[in-house]
C-alpha cells in the first residue's frame, strides 16, 4: 500500500513537469509567469529554502523547554 502510494506520487511528479509545457499561464504579468513549469522550481527551491531557513533559525532561537521558568 505504502509502496503503491509512493509510485503514484512519483508518476504524478514526473508527469506534471511536461504537462507544464502544454499549458500556458492565463494572466502572465511577470516574466516568470511565462516560463513553463516554473512552479516546479518554486516548489522545490522554496521548500529547501524554508527548511534551510528553519534549521538556521533553530540554531538561534531553539532553547530548552523550561527556558522561561
Amino acid at each position: 500500500m505504502k509502496k503503491t502510494l509512493k509510485r503514484i506520487f512519483y508518476l504524478f511528479l514526473i508527469l506534471c513537469i511536461p504537462a507544464g509545457f502544454l499549458i500556458e499561464h492565463e494572466h502572465a504579468v511577470f516574466f516568470w509567469h511565462k516560463i513553463p513549469s516554473i512552479d516546479v522550481v518554486f516548489g522545490f527551491l522554496g521548500a529547501m529554502l524554508l527548511i534551510g531557513g528553519a534549521r538556521l533559525l533553530a540554531h538561534l532561537v531553539h532553547k530548552e523547554e523550561d527556558f522561561y521558568d
Binding site: L13, D39, V40, F42, G46, A47
Partner: peptide, 11 residues
C-alpha cells in the same frame, strides 16, 4: 497545474 506542481515538489 501550478498548484499541483508546487505541492508535488514540496512533497
Amino acid at each position: 497545474l501550478g498548484t499541483v506542481q508546487l505541492f508535488l515538489l514540496a512533497g
